[in-house]
């Protein structure tokens, strides 16, 4: 019953989605509900057509039953992403995006694409942003050493993607450094 082998060294994307969908999002409910206490907090009351904030998992559950419209977060639109893409391609550092943007964007585009304006264009932009950022994280690999690598603005899904390789790379460098200092120490003793 211990952890499955595939999950021992890293986290799976569905698990990251589970964590991301604890975040709150605005919905326009189509049904009424009294304020209800859940484990993560109390939500509601839902009174159509007043907007209300609920966790993403709840919004998705309601959306699948056609009981609400989801209000896209302020960063999930063409203008914002276009601007980030420009930053991403003209500057060397990572642009600022919400830490779990990629999980949330995927969930919303999969389930509520009719509540989002221009979903196809957004998908293209997200893909371009992802590629531009991937290229940067690969460049970051050149700067890796055995003690530290700063990765400002890197996002959750991107970290997960580079994790196996980067952790291994740092491990190898740690070994090499340790061995060479041990070597030097030995040489000094013989001297």
């Amino acid at each position: 019953m211990a952890l499955p082998v595939a999950l021992r060294d890293t986290v799976s994307p569905p698990e990251l989605e589970l964590i991301a969908s604890e975040q709150l999002i605005e919905i326009v409910p189509l049904i009424a509900m009294e304020r209800t206490a859940f484990i993560s907090g109390a939500y509601g009351p839902l009174r159509p057509p007043a907007k209300s904030k609920v966790p993403i998992w709840m919004a998705m559950n309601l959306k699948l039953k056609r009981k609400c419209h989801i209000v896209a977060p302020e960063w999930l639109n063409v203008e914002f992403l276009q601007e980030r893409l420009t930053q991403e391609t003209t500057r060397t550092e990572f642009s600022q995006l919400p830490f779990r943007f990629s999980e949330i964007a995927k969930l919303l585009l999969d389930i509520a694409s009719d509540d989002i304006q221009n979903p196809d264009k957004i998908r293209y932009l997200l893909k371009d942003i992802r590629e531009a950022r991937q290229a940067k994280s690969r460049d970051g690999l050149q700067k890796i050493d055995h003690s530290e690598l700063s990765l400002p603005n890197l996002c959750s899904m991107e970290i997960n993607e580079i994790r196996p390789f980067f952790v291994k790379a740092m491990g190898v460098l740690t070994h090499l450094t340790r061995e060479s200092t041990a070597d030097n120490a030995a040489r000094f003793e013989n001297f």
């Binding site: 055995h146 003690s147 530290e148 690598l149 990765l151 400002p152 603005n153 890197l154 952790v167």
Partner: peptide, 9 residues
């Protein structure tokens, strides 16, 4: 900040 570093640190 986000940093990659050995656990011991």
């Amino acid at each position: 900040y986000i940093v990659l570093t050995p656990y011991a640190v």
